Amino acid sequence: MEQIDIFDANLKPMGKKERRRAHFDADWHVTFHLWVVGQVYSGSVLYQWRSTEMENFPDMLDVSAAGHILSGETMQDGIREAEEELGITFDSRRIHNLGYRVEVADQENGQKNREYQGVHMCKVEIGLNDFQPQIEEVSGLYWINIQEGIELFTDKRSEVVANGVYYDPKREKWIESERVFSKDNFLPRIQNYYLTAHIMAERLLDDKLPLSIS
């Protein structure tokens, strides 16, 4: 079983625990988030469509790549796992560290998220055909235009049209797709995380550094 390091609310190490048990015990732990940004469609953010097999929040849009930092691992291991999850290699020199954001949320299944999320962002110049996602984790990848996303998350529009690919298990292949999403399609978060990610993506494409999140 996967072990993760657990902390107090000040990120002081408190030992390690089995990952699922840590969630039910409301233990603080660290996760890795990577947002992928591209110039496609006049500047877009890449979202992952979570697999139907995921225990938590299946069939929902989320960060491009994300995962738990296992016991003894570092954020560099998070980058490696993001590469495995998406099936591409990132240039570490182009990955920006936006800092930690704190997420506190209780789920109906009894799990309690107490996470320090190490948020990163990277600009890429490749197309979706260059990605080879892990079908166990990812059901699809979709580009959402930065400005349209900002309008969606500020309630200036009710939905966006996204271009991407989804995995068809019957045909065992990735299929190009255009889909319409509303805010209900995104993994729920209390804070304006997605809005902030789009604002930071806009800054990144405009070369307006530094980038930050909280």
Rank of each mutant, 00 (worst) to 15 (best):
A105L: 06
P169V: 01
G118H: 12
D27R: 09
K123S: 10
V30T: 11
W49P: 02
W174I: 01
P58L: 05
Q39C: 02
V37F: 01
C122A: 14
L141R: 13
Q107L: 15
K170R: 02
E151A: 14
D168W: 02
I95D: 15
N185W: 13
V124E: 09
L152N: 01
K16F: 11
M1Q: 12
I190E: 14
A66E: 13
H29V: 00
I6D: 09
G43C: 02
S64V: 05
K170G: 03
G78K: 10
I4W: 06
A65G: 15
E136I: 10
E137Y: 14
L128Y: 15
V36L: 06
I190R: 15
A105H: 05
R21H: 08
K16I: 08
A105M: 04
R94D: 08
I150D: 05
T52P: 09
H120T: 10
D25E: 13
A201S: 07
L61N: 02
G78P: 10
L195T: 03
A66M: 14
V37H: 00
D77C: 14
M200C: 10
W28R: 13
L46I: 01
H23L: 11
P210L: 14
N163C: 10
I4G: 05
E103D: 04
R50K: 05
S64D: 08
E178Q: 12
G87N: 07
E53Y: 15
Q107A: 11
M54G: 04
D59M: 03
K173G: 03
